[in-house]
Design a protein around this nucleic acid. Sequence first.
DNA 1: GTTCATAATTTGTCCTGGACAAAGCGTTGA
DNA 2: TCAACGCTTTGTCCAGGACAAATTATGAAC
Lengths: 312, 312
Amino acid sequence: MNTTSLSPVGLPIAAVERDTGLAKDTLRVWERRYGFPAPDRDANGERVYPAEQVEKLRLIRRLIDQGLRPARLIALDPDALGRMLDELRSPTVATDPERRAQLQALLEQVRRHDHEGLRGTLQQLLMKMGLQPFVMEIVALLNDMVGDAWLRGEVDVPAEHLYTEQLKGILRTAIAARSGTSRGRPAVLLTTFPEEQHALGLLMVEAMLTPEGACCVSLGVQTPLEDIRSTAIAGHYDIVALSFSSAYPLRHALDGLRSLRAGLPPQIELWAGGAGLRTAGRKLPGIRVFAALDDIPAALAEWRRNAAPVQP
Amino acid sequence: MNTTSLSPVGLPIAAVERDTGLAKDTLRVWERRYGFPAPDRDANGERVYPAEQVEKLRLIRRLIDQGLRPARLIALDPDALGRMLDELRSPTVATDPERRAQLQALLEQVRRHDHEGLRGTLQQLLMKMGLQPFVMEIVALLNDMVGDAWLRGEVDVPAEHLYTEQLKGILRTAIAARSGTSRGRPAVLLTTFPEEQHALGLLMVEAMLTPEGACCVSLGVQTPLEDIRSTAIAGHYDIVALSFSSAYPLRHALDGLRSLRAGLPPQIELWAGGAGLRTAGRKLPGIRVFAALDDIPAALAEWRRNAAPVQP
DNA sequence: GTTCATAATTTGTCCTGGACAAAGCGTTGA
DNA sequence: TCAACGCTTTGTCCAGGACAAATTATGAAC
């Protein structure tokens, strides 16, 4: 009988790697250097991580993603880590009290696994607001809220999955309904770099672009750099758009973007955005970095203004 | 300047792990034991894998997924491996010549990155055939063909991504259009085990169930076992349906399924299918194993026959 | 006081080579 | 046909060393 999955004694190192995103080597070297984590050992001498330690590792991981460094974090207790995260959290909370209430209600539905209610509410908001405002004012904020709630254990794995799936379904449907047989310009190639797993950001961008008449083609996540390059050139795309989640290492993003920029002909624009590029403002010549989804329509209009005289 | 991604000298071990799905430890131990792979070393003594070796590793990986073992494979040259795959390939090729031609045409569109044509053709076939036949007779076979073609290098990464994305979009839209406000029975919880990445199988199942009036809720991929259990119970689902791709280790699937069966109340049925369960026929008491998508409607009808007298 | 180069530290990933349990395979006996 | 047994194969884990890349601290020059 399988005991690893339905009993709460602890997790082997491979499972911790999966759950926290910290490599096995990193887990071992932290233990060696800092004394944490300090897993139990099974009869065979192999590490068995108690749930609390995995929890703390998750918090630490999140803080590292925010730019902090392990030595400062590893001695702190989970409460202190939690408080730290609260302070660091970007103030993306909605200002409008009505909107706040809507978002809170949605979060509550996520928490309760109320898939029907969630779907209904989202669908309704989408209808009322229109796709673009829906994405900017609901989805973007709700994403952050669910991420936060997940982190502090107020939302469990299935709830988070359910949320993602419902949203993907709704956005995809909405995009499909609006795309028609669009052959418009610009032609935009959407994807992410190889290490990036998060597909929602991509869908949100597509949802911003499609209603404006852009012709979006998404390759989904995890496309090798060289393949992005060759596809963009062979497909005669006007714009390549990349999305980076907050977990994406900034350095990789910058390197990759510069390298890609160098490999693309100048008439193909390179657009990049997402939480992973927060502080990456100016260092990227020839690349348009988006601080928020709101900037997309303006950028599109600008592209059209510039391109119109040249392109038939 | 980043040289790792746009120059073809070779890949570091982490990249090979990502590309082939073989763990770093496995790559090193193969080298130690079998003498293959035999990567070059950079100035720093670190492994640098030439592209051909990565290619061969991919072939080996695929054959291992089919049940073969490394010792038999590792000495063979890529051609021999390719032939082996041909022979092993399940004879899922369409018999009807017209269908064959359609599928070949689709594959050609995938190969050429012809997203518009691909989308159009798929959409058209979907309209003409209806969702369920479309899934059974087109998607299932095309999946295999694209997988095969990818393996032998006839289809590149972006093409495969493009195909997956287009298909996800089309299926999601079709499902959404057919689901309405369905509150029907049975209520089906769809998901995969934690190591499983492939979402298309899940969507195909959903596409088979939804038009029959079942109420499907998908958690997407990679849900921990315990979470599947608790969600199924708390949500009062009638059926839990799991999908396993061919890459999924059979043993894990069997263990997990048995464990889950033991953890679920008997009135919740457990359905499982996908290429990962090929030979798993009878060994699973209390679990319905599907050899093909075609069996789903019948199973559903059977469930309704049995459940009707008991459930209001 | 700001800018920039240089030194010190931190940190993640890689390395080697040993070990072992679980899975697979073949044999034997009922 | 099946179950029980031993032998072989195979993937994953471990320890502890090493090092380069990233970050921070230091100091010199403007």
